[in-house]
Design a protein around this nucleic acid. Structure first.
Lengths: 182, 182
DNA sequence: ATTGGCTGTAAAATATAATAGACACTTTTT
DNA sequence: AAAAAGTGTCTATTATATTTTACAGCCAAT
C-alpha cells in the first residue's frame, strides 16, 4: 500500500484507538504536530517522525511497510452467505472469500429425510459440529447416533461418516473442519 | 546496520562515486543540504529525503534497510594469501574468507620433482588450470601430457588426475574448480 | 609558477516544520 | 439541563530545515 505519511499515521493511530493528544503526549510532540502530519500539511523531519512512531513502539521501516488495513471481511449477514448443495445438504460457507483459510466453517441445512448418501464420506481433516435444531442421525465408522438440538460430534481425520435427517422438521447443523477441503 | 541517516547517505553516495553537488543537482536540492544531512546537522524532512533518494532511484525503505558495505575482501596482496601444503604443492587460496564461495581459486607452486603422489586425485568438481611457468606433467585418466608455460587443462567431475613437476625449475599453476572442495 | 575546476563546509537569509494557545464541536459527567 | 472533558483544526510565533553565497583546500591543466 503506497499511501502518504499522513494517511498512514492516521490509520495507525486509529488502529490503537488513541487520540491525537494522547499520541502527542506519548511522543513528546504537540498535538498540533500530529494534526498537521495527518493532514499532510507538513512533511515531518525524520527525527520527529521517529519520535511519533516510538510512541507506538514501531520503527520507521515497519511503519512504511505495514499493511494498514486488512480487506478480509469479518461480518457476514445471513443473506450474504451463498447457499450451495452438496452431500444432501444445503451449505453456507463462512469466510469463503478469505485467502489461506485454515478452517472450513459451514452452516448446514438438511431437509426432512435428506441424507449424505449411501457412500461414506471421508476427508483428510478433523471435523466437529453441533445440531442447532432437528434430529440428525450420524454414522461414524460402525457407530450410529441420533443427535438432537445441542448434541455435537467430533470426527477424526479420514474417518468414514455420513449424515441423515431422521426428524420430522428440517435439521440445522453448524460444523467446522481443518484443514479445509474447500 | 543501525547507523544514522547522515552516515548512510554518505556511504550510499560513495558507493555511486558521486559528489555532493552532483547528487544535489539530480535531487533538485542544494549541495549544502546534502552536506548538512551527511553531517547530521539537520534531520531532513521525509519529503526532502525522498527527493535525495530518488536521485539514486531507491526508496526510503531500501535506504533504511540496505547493507551499506560488504565486508567481503576483494583485493589480496601477494603476502596476504596464506600458503599451505597439500598434494605435493604449495597452495594459496584466493578469497579464503568469503562466505558461500562457489569457486576454489588456487595459486599452486610445485618445487622441482614435486608431485601429488602415486594415488590419483578425484574431486566432485570440474577443474581448470593454466601453467604460468615451468613444466607440469598432468595425468588425466590414461592420458599424460607435459604442459609448459601458457598450456592449460580442464578436468571433468570425478576424473582421476595427478600432477608432477618434470622441469628443472619450480612450476607455477593457477587453477580453479567448482563447486569448491575447500 | 598561476589559473581553473572541483570538493565539502560555514554563515546569513529564507522557507518550512513544530509549538503554543485559542476555537468550535462532540461526548461524558454531574 | 448545564458543566466538564475530550476531540481535531486553526493561527501566530518559534525553532529548525533548506537555500544562497562565500570560503578554503585540493588537483589538474597551462
Amino acid at each position: 500500500m503506497e499511501n502518504d505519511i499522513g494517511t498512514r499515521l492516521k490509520a495507525l493511530r486509529s488502529m490503537y484507538g488513541l487520540s491525537q493528544r494522547e499520541v502527542a503526549k506519548r511522543a513528546g510532540v504537540t498535538n498540533s504536530t500530529i494534526s498537521l502530519i495527518e493532514q499532510n500539511r507538513v512533511s515531518p523531519s525524520i527525527d520527529s517522525m521517529k519520535k511519533v512512531l516510538d510512541s507506538f513502539s514501531i520503527s520507521l521501516i515497519d511503519f512504511l511497510t505495514m499493511d494498514m488495513e486488512s480487506d478480509e471481511k469479518i461480518f457476514f449477514e445471513k443473506a450474504e452467505l451463498i447457499e450451495f448443495f452438496e452431500n444432501g445438504a444445503h451449505l453456507k460457507l463462512v469466510g469463503a472469500n478469505r485467502k489461506d483459510r485454515k478452517l472450513r466453517f459451514l452452516h448446514e441445512r438438511y431437509e426432512v429425510g435428506a441424507h449424505s448418501g449411501d457412500e461414506m464420506l471421508t476427508h483428510n481433516s478433523e471435523e466437529a459440529g453441533i445440531v442447532i435444531s432437528g434430529e440428525l442421525e450420524l454414522t461414524v465408522g460402525q457407530q450410529v447416533k441420533v443427535l438432537k438440538a445441542g448434541d455435537s460430534y467430533y470426527i477424526n481425520n479420514n474417518t468414514p461418516h455420513r449424515f441423515k435427517n431422521v426428524g420430522n422438521i428440517e435439521c440445522i447443523v453448524v460444523s467446522a473442519a481443518t484443514p479445509p477441503s474447500f
